[in-house]
Design a protein around this nucleic acid. Structure first.
Length: 570
RNA sequence: CAGGAUGUAGCUCAAUGGAAGAGCACCGGUUUUGGGAACCGGUGACGGAGGUUCGAUUCCUCCCAUCUUGACCA
């Protein structure tokens, strides 16, 4: 490609309102342009990067037996209604009607449609299967942000495995795990696989591939000693046990005028330390209220609650709903004497007595509460969100918590979709069995952004060779006939060697060209000018290193080719 | 959906209740250049609808859009 003919609109200024480094640099480097919130056009350079990411993924998924499909984006609502996700997905699902008034959805994922195709599988002899496609997903995100990191329209590689039994599915899951590790490594991403919640996808085992980055939106709990890693949505931790104090024969109601918070009760005369309080939270789960109990100083991890309840929709109850249910306002709530509401309590409260909690009467609390004795707990669940500094659950080290970008996610789906959509095969005994499935996703744009987020400096992007839009740029420092001729020649030789080359033949000041090359982030630069040519040399710079060296013109192609091959070999 | 912020030229930003400016970009010309050069000339903007006012880009209301802080996901 000749830069003089190329559309690579670089910008001097950061786009207004951009926070994430990848967002700023991808816009400034001429890779992407925003159409609207959460929707970006990929410009030629951006498209090239994405295609390299795509190729790496396709190669690795093919290597574990993947077969590429292309399934529709427009789906009949009826299929989503059959699996219950028409309701479960809520507002995030784009819905539309056709001219006859029939409901349709724009696919946000493809479990349903792939499963439908899989209903043609009839015999265990046809299994296992591994199917995938790269397809646009549309999600009406509540809040798109950070450029390509969180958008409403994006291309995802999603694969789906089909097996006769859990054992076969486990193999495919492990194969994906390994393939994902290779994929991300090849594109220059250091990932950590973490235990995760499978959320609305519905599944059992679930592993997310995380890239540590302050631009990320997930929090990962990590033990440097043993390597334990888990999304805080799932993470466990060890905390010191709290000894019970002040047990009472029976609960005792006492006035607490104006006390509405844990802190206020802790500092209130006759109150109790946060660790000796029971925090009572009311949630509405798919229309029904439930009462959630936590130790006063423990935060609730909502996803843990949602996972436990297998909830579709989960939200804190509104104040009027709370008053209707318990007869008091938030700040004076408790579970003592409550019998007609499901009560889910955190395991951190098990065995506790002498606790203080709201009396379900404004301005009154109860002390001396023995949880097992006084509260009708329906189930004990781990609901606490871990904090940095707490003990690792699998070694005696401490946990740290860092921000991360989720670049890949793999799930075991079991028979959830095959059962409801009728994807069954006959086993050796001629008995129909629902196919056991797994699903595995990687967002292309997000991967590109994650790479950009990690590989940059104050001058711009620094693409790993494997995903760079061009592997090498030839910068003509002057556009006189001799330099042009030498540059053109070199350009042809580099291309003949199989390299992706960009020739900067623009009639611009050298400074402009150097700065642009650095912003765009091309890994290797060859500078051609009259000065060097007089000695038979060109100048060579590796973007990541920045040091210039003179290399004979007749050896430069082999030099660069060698470096590129080495980089691609990993 | 709730809180906060912002909407002025292609981009990044100013100013103003009374004829809207800059830098960069772009077009024409001079300059022919080893780290975002100079000069001359030129094109080009007040998100939308109401309201207050003699007069609104400015003040008010609503709408829309974008960004940002909280729950979903690749």
């Amino acid at each position: 490609m000749r830069w003089s003919q190329a559309f690579i609109p670089t910008l001097r200024d950061d786009p207004a309102g951009a926070e994430a480094i990848s967002h700023k640099l991808l816009v400034r480097g001429g890779y992407i342009r925003q159409l609207m919130s959460g929707s970006y056009s990929l410009l030629p350079a951006g498209f090239r990067v994405r295609n390299k990411v795509r190729a790496i993924i396709a190669e690795e998924i093919d290597s574990i037996g993947g077969q590429e499909f292309l399934l529709p984006v427009l789906h009949p609502a009826e299929v989503w209604q059959r699996t219950g996700r028409w309701e479960a997905m809520g507002d995030e699902l784009f819905r539309l009607k056709d001219r006859r008034g029939v409901d349709h959805v724009l696919g946000m994922t493809h479990e349903e449609i792939f499963t439908l195709v899989a209903t043609e599988l009839k015999s265990y002899k046809q299994l296992p299967q591994l199917w995938y496609h790269f397809q646009t997903k549309l999600r009406d995100e509540p809040r798109p942000k950070s450029g390509l990191l969180r958008v409403r329209e994006f291309v995802m590689k999603d694969s789906y495995s089909f097996d006769l039994d859990e054992e076969g599915q486990a193999k495919q899951f492990d194969a994906h795990h390994a393939a994902y590790t290779r994929i991300f490594k090849r594109m220059g991403l250091e990932t950590v696989p973490v235990e995760a919640s499978s959320g609305a996808m519905g599944g059992s085992d679930s592993v997310e591939f995380m890239v540590q980055s302050t631009a990320g939106e997930d929090f990962v709990a990590f033990s440097g000693r043993c390597g334990y890693s888990a999304n805080v949505e799932r993470a466990q931790s060890r905390i010191p046990t709290v000894a019970n104090t002040n047990p009472l024969e029976a609960t005792e109601k006492f006035p607490t005028p104006g006390v509405r918070t844990i802190d206020a009760l802790a500092s209130f005369e006759g109150g109790a330390a946060a660790e000796n309080q029971i925090k009572s939270l009311v949630y509405i789960v798919d229309e029904d209220p439930i009462l959630v109990l936590m130790r006063g100083d423990h935060p609730l991890q909502e996803q843990k609650l949602a996972d436990h309840l297998k909830a579709g929709e989960l939200r804190p109850a509104h104040e009027d709903e709370i008053v209707d249910l318990l007869g008091a306002h938030p700040g004076s709530l408790g579970a003592v004497g409550v019998s007609d509401v499901r009560i889910v309590a955190d395991v951190g409260l098990q065995g506790r007595n002498g606790m203080t909690t709201g009396a379900n009467e404004d301005d009154f609390h109860l002390r001396g509460v023995d949880i097992e004795r006084d509260i009708d707990v329906s189930e004990w669940v781990n609901l606490r969100e871990v904090k940095a500094g707490e003990g690792c659950p699998s070694c005696d080290g401490d946990l740290e918590v860092y921000k991360a970008i989720e670049v890949g996610h793999i799930f075991k789906l079991g028979a959830k979709y095959s059962k409801t959509l009728g994807a069954t095969v006959l086993d050796e005994n001629g008995k129909a069995r629902p196919i056991i499935m797994g699903s595995y996703g990687i967002g292309l744009g997000r991967a590109v952004a994650a790479i950009a987020e990690v590989h940059n400096d104050d001058k711009g992007l620094i693409w790993p060779v494997a995903v760079a839009p061009w592997e090498v740029i030839v910068t003509l420092v002057k556009t006189d006939p001799d330099t042009m001729a030498a540059g053109e020649h070199l350009y042809r030789d580099l291309k003949a060697a199989g390299l992706d080359v960009l020739l900067d033949d623009r009639n611009e000041r050298p400074g402009v060209k150097f700065t642009d090359a650095e912003l765009v982030g091309i890994p290797y630069r060859i500078t051609v000018g009259p000065r060097g040519l007089a000695d038979g040399n060109v100048e060579f710079v590796e973007r990541a290193v920045g040091e210039r060296s003179d290399i004979p013109l007749d050896g430069i192609v082999a030099h660069v080719k060698g470096l590129v091959d080495q980089a691609l070999a990993g």
